[in-house]
Design a protein around this nucleic acid. Structure first.
Lengths: 191, 191
DNA sequence: TGTATTATTGAGTAGGCACTCAGTAATACA
DNA sequence: TGTATTACTGAGTGCCTACTCAATAATACA
């Protein structure tokens, strides 16, 4: 085994990358600066991640996992569809407000050209339970006719994003935006 | 006046940039490659745009203008709100399907760190008429209570984007997606 | 305690990039 | 036609970047 790698250092590197990526963008954040902020030598960064692209892909998976966690923890499996969707909605909104940097980085990563197909698949994996819920609800005719699964999940994501944006620029109305946004979403998908 | 600049060359540069940015991303598209594809010398690029960031900002405005044009041309000012919104919806969807590259580039630009505040303002300007329509409809109580203007415009954009994504991956259902998406949007915002 | 293995360091390297500039060609205007 | 002005060219420049590597230190295990 010899000397083991340190989970702390790995996290410090990912944290530093998150901060820099959010502030300056992916390509304006050199590995020299990332390692400096993480308080490790530049070479160390490359023992934890083979290339900068590797680091970026790892960060993507990490953030997706966190987000899925925020949405699916304490998921009320026994309750009705509306309640379950509302749970997911709130989890997403709260996560976005509490983690603006990760959210900003995620937005950059999703349009970047460096994510591999494997990373994209891995990023979607934690959301399977959510997908299954949607499919179940479609079969039970909870939603309006012929709504494709993707339209539902994408519009949820989209409306949540809009809700977070609004809340960030006017935090005192947080509760109202969260309610209004969800009502809008629910009215859109049900008959 | 001496020798004038050529509108053609300027467009060729912007076109080449659009193609490259869509395929490889902003930062993986060197000015040497852009000028090569535009069939001009690299120096020429810098007589039309002072810096690469300048070029990017100019491209952003150009694309936003095209999009606004697609949404607002033949705008039926006399018809009711639903019809007008549907017009805008269709214009946006059709533009996105017909111009996948520009759409992809726009997505990249919007999260990039190079857009100036001036460019962002300029990019929003062509959509004022749309904003005015929304505000008018709110005053006339067409929508459900207390919907913020931004939530309406952002969710329109978001649902259109989702609709376009779906259509691109399943073109035979184009018409259905367009209808379903809009119905969903309309049901969401009205009471 | 000794040893094999691996992490850590940071100066060094090669490659790529945005941008320049001196020479040349094209155009507007007198 | 002549001239002033400006566009056009592409080799050249200096900076910055991702990544390497030889030396050193830390750890697991016998």
């Amino acid at each position: 085994m010899a000397r083991p790698k340190s989970e702390d250092k790995r996290n410090a590197i990912l944290d530093a990358a998150t901060r820099l990526f959010a502030e300056r963008g992916l390509t304006a954040s050199p590995t020299s600066e990332i390692s400096k902020q993480a308080r490790v030598a530049e070479g160390t960064l490359f023992t934890y991640f083979k290339t900068k692209d590797d680091l970026i892909n790892a960060l993507y998976r990490e953030i997706k996992l966190e987000l899925a966690d925020a949405m699916m923890s304490d998921f009320p499996r026994k309750k009705n569809v509306r309640t379950r969707l509302r749970h997911v909605w709130d989890g997403y909104v709260n996560w976005g407000i509490a983690n603006p940097r990760q959210r900003k980085v995620l937005a950059q990563l999703q349009v970047s050209e460096v994510l591999t197909k494997e990373s994209k698949d891995a990023g979607g994996a934690p959301f399977v339970e959510f997908q299954i819920m949607i499919r179940g609800a479609i079969e039970q005719r909870v939603f309006r006719n012929d709504l494709p699964v993707e339209l539902i999940s994408k519009s949820l994501a989209a409306l949540v994003e809009a809700t977070i944006d609004l809340t960030m620029s006017n935090p005192s109305k947080a509760k109202r935006y969260r309610d209004t946004g969800f009502q809008m979403f629910w009215a859109g998908i049900t008959k």
